[in-house]
Amino acid sequence: MVPYETLEILLAPFQRCHKAEPGPDVRLGIQNLQRTLRDHPDWMGAVAAQVGNLPPHGAGWVAVSLGVLVENGHPADPSGPCLLEFFEHLLARFPEISDDDEDYPPLDEAQQIWLDAIPNLARALVSHLARLPDRREDWATTESRMTRLEQLEGYSYAFSWVREAIQRHSAPLTVLHVESRQGYRVHYHNVANCFHLFSLLQCRLGTLLPGGRAPDEAVLAAALGGDGQVSDHGWWHYGWPQHTTPEPLFPIWGEGLTRHLPQVDGEALILLWPMTIQRSWDSGFFGPHLDALPANLTVEGTLSVDEVVETLRQLGG
């Protein structure tokens, strides 16, 4: 347990922090806080629990300090839950937004100050969420939380960082090209949106499957987090395993989330067919690049023809 006097001394510079740009005393406070917590990592939870008692910018710099420690190998469990709980309370401080609102309601002075501090809090949350998959899953499956984050994105892009971090998902995936009886086992890492997944699949599988082509290096770079706006389009019809023929009006929708991909025996499975209706998308569907949760897709192995045929037989094809 942190001695109360020690906690007061550690947080004193942040109690006086009322500007987004840290002054010399706050910079010194950040160094002292990080040095102390490196020696006493079991104090991180107690420090995180005090974030809500600090002025907005002071809270932001304490959160950033905790995030840096987590990125450098300290456990996220002590401080992450406290920061998430505080962030959820903070979301409620902003105006309620109705679907009928044409413009975002104006913020009062206190709300605006907290909004200015949100980017630092969001950076810290992303660092923690990257190492707390159970917390990400809890938030991702709570519709009210996700709706609230989406509503507030119009006030600050930082809310989209948190929403993207929560929705990013990693899992094994089996891809079967039905007509050629070819199949691959892949693993996607930190991919939220199915259009993003489709671009990564196309770039990684390239010419290995009928209908494929050489990857567009600009698309691959953007899908892996690079700068620049690009557009992409589908090479195949991405079909549900429940459909034994391509259903043009019922593809796996690119706008959907990867965590909702169809499952067979507990693992995601996609059937590839020749293109039926052309779909295109841009790199806006790749979401913001998050250093703590970099997107990727790796090809893990090849299925034999017999394995593909047997899987399709079990599906009724």
Rank of each mutant, 00 (worst) to 15 (best):
residue 5 E to T: 12
residue 11 L to M: 01
residue 16 R to G: 01
residue 26 V to T: 07
residue 29 G to K: 09
residue 32 N to C: 09
residue 37 L to I: 00
residue 42 D to F: 00
residue 42 D to V: 02
residue 52 G to Q: 12
residue 55 P to D: 12
residue 55 P to N: 11
residue 57 H to P: 00
residue 59 A to K: 13
residue 75 P to V: 02
residue 75 P to A: 11
residue 78 P to Y: 09
residue 78 P to Q: 10
residue 83 L to P: 06
residue 88 E to K: 03
residue 97 I to F: 09
residue 98 S to W: 11
residue 104 Y to V: 02
residue 104 Y to G: 02
residue 105 P to V: 07
residue 105 P to I: 06
residue 106 P to Q: 13
residue 111 Q to K: 13
residue 115 L to E: 10
residue 116 D to C: 11
residue 118 I to N: 01
residue 121 L to G: 02
residue 125 L to N: 01
residue 129 L to A: 04
residue 130 A to F: 10
residue 132 L to E: 12
residue 134 D to N: 13
residue 141 T to A: 13
residue 150 E to N: 12
residue 151 Q to H: 09
residue 154 G to A: 14
residue 162 V to D: 07
residue 169 H to W: 15
residue 170 S to R: 04
residue 171 A to S: 15
residue 174 T to K: 11
residue 178 V to T: 09
residue 178 V to C: 10
residue 178 V to D: 08
residue 179 E to G: 00
residue 182 Q to E: 11
residue 183 G to C: 07
residue 188 Y to G: 01
residue 190 N to W: 14
residue 190 N to G: 08
residue 194 C to M: 08
residue 194 C to D: 09
residue 195 F to S: 11
residue 197 L to R: 00
residue 202 Q to I: 05
residue 203 C to Y: 10
residue 210 P to L: 04
residue 210 P to Y: 06
residue 216 D to P: 00
residue 216 D to V: 00
residue 223 A to Q: 11
residue 230 V to A: 12
residue 230 V to C: 12
residue 233 H to C: 11
residue 244 T to P: 02
residue 253 W to E: 14
residue 258 T to R: 09
residue 261 L to K: 12
residue 263 Q to K: 10
residue 270 I to Y: 01
residue 275 M to E: 14
residue 277 I to P: 02
residue 285 F to V: 10
residue 288 P to A: 05
residue 290 L to A: 04
residue 290 L to N: 05
residue 293 L to T: 09
residue 297 L to C: 08
residue 309 V to F: 03
residue 316 G to T: 06
